[in-house]
């Protein structure tokens, strides 16, 4: 017999406070680590070998999506299963904004974290996924505090800056992290009455605004993504308050739309390994310039990148979903 659906997203809402603690618990375990985008089994192997805490399985990294266009969707279940079978670290995958059916499939596949991501083509222009309806934890992107808290209200167990994915330009990740931390700091000095107005201003639930005002930080881990391409970029984001780093196109891309051939070309495989290892070390030792200098020197080649400032408004991924 079929499972009884509750009419929401086709999933039974789980015992929410226990589930939320477990979801945030996994996010806690990823702190101080690097989550790497991978498009095949060999890249997943390289990521694990280099010390990634998790891999994000996807069909095309943001740089390729950007260059090739078309509709970007959830990765194929076949690819996701292959990657799950290859590595022992947690596996994440992306669902389109609002596409709860893709998320149901990802949960069914046993993915450990779902990224409801602006990098894929949005499926719903008004609604995000009701993430409380899932047992699998979600991470969502945000550009400011209000956006972060709206996602947390919907059930996200981790927030990451949106940055501008697939550019190799860290400028927007910096902007988003600075904005979120500045807005949190501003809340901590407000009086109780002023917090109601702040909730209205940020378009976020009052309860969450009050929690941030008391703690001075988000109630879930706050990671950084979107344009991080070098060990120095990773260290910069960590020093600005990120608790872990997502690297998308920065490790496995050669030219704008061409990945390094890690399967057939030993030299290009070595290049990917050197980038991956260096970013992992830089993320742990983000406060140690001596080690940062050493690891930066060991890197061979860097993703060419695309200046985010030169992008037209309609080419930006970060404005999707708000």
């Amino acid at each position: 017999m079929a499972e009884v659906h509750n009419g929401k997203n086709g999933h039974n809402p789980a015992n929410s406070s226990t589930t939320l603690r477990l979801k945030v618990g996994l996010a806690e375990m990823l702190k101080g680590g690097v989550i790497m985008d991978v498009m095949n089994v060999e890249q997943a192997r390289i990521a694990e070998e280099a010390g990634a805490v998790s891999v994000m399985a996807l069909e095309r990294v943001p740089a390729m999506i950007r260059a090739e266009g078309g509709v970007a969707r959830m990765a194929s279940p076949k690819l996701i299963k292959e990657i799950i079978d290859t590595v022992s670290i947690p596996v994440m995958a992306k669902a389109r904004i609002g596409h709860f059916a893709e998320a149901q499939i990802l949960q069914q596949l046993g993915v450990d974290f779902i990224d409801e991501s602006e990098v894929l083509t949005p499926a719903d222009e008004a609604h995000h996924i009701d993430k409380h309806a899932f047992t699998t934890p979600f991470v969502c992107g945000a550009r400011n505090l209000g956006e972060a808290l709206r996602r947390i209200a919907e059930g996200a167990a981790m927030i990451r800056t949106k940055g501008e994915a697939g550019t190799g330009d860290v400028v927007h990740a910096v902007q988003h992290m600075r904005q979120i931390t500045r807005e949190m700091r501003a809340l901590t000095v407000l009086s109780d009455q002023e917090l109601y107005a702040a909730a209205k201003e940020h378009q976020a639930p009052y309860e969450l605004i009050r929690m941030v005002a008391q703690a001075g930080k988000l109630p879930v881990p706050n990671f950084s993504a979107g344009g991080i391409a070098t060990p120095a970029d990773a260290a910069l984001m960590m020093q600005l308050g990120a608790e872990a780093i997502f690297v998308g196109s920065g490790i496995f891309m050669k030219e704008r739309a061409t990945p390094l051939d890690v399967e057939n070309n030993p030299k290009e495989r070595e290049e990917a390994v050197s980038r991956a290892k260096a970013i992992v070390i830089a993320t742990t030792h983000y406060n140690d310039p001596k080690i940062l200098a050493e690891v930066s020197e060991q890197v061979t080649g860097t993703m060419k990148g695309l200046a985010a400032a030169a992008l037209e408004e309609n080419q930006l991924l970060q404005t999707r979903g708000n």
Binding site: G33, V53, S88, V280
Partner: peptide
């Protein structure tokens, strides 16, 4: 602490 044991090991090997 908790975390990813493979990540710890890769790091400790250096």
């Amino acid at each position: 602490p908790g975390g990813e044991s493979t990540t710890f090991l890769k790091f400790l090997e250096r």
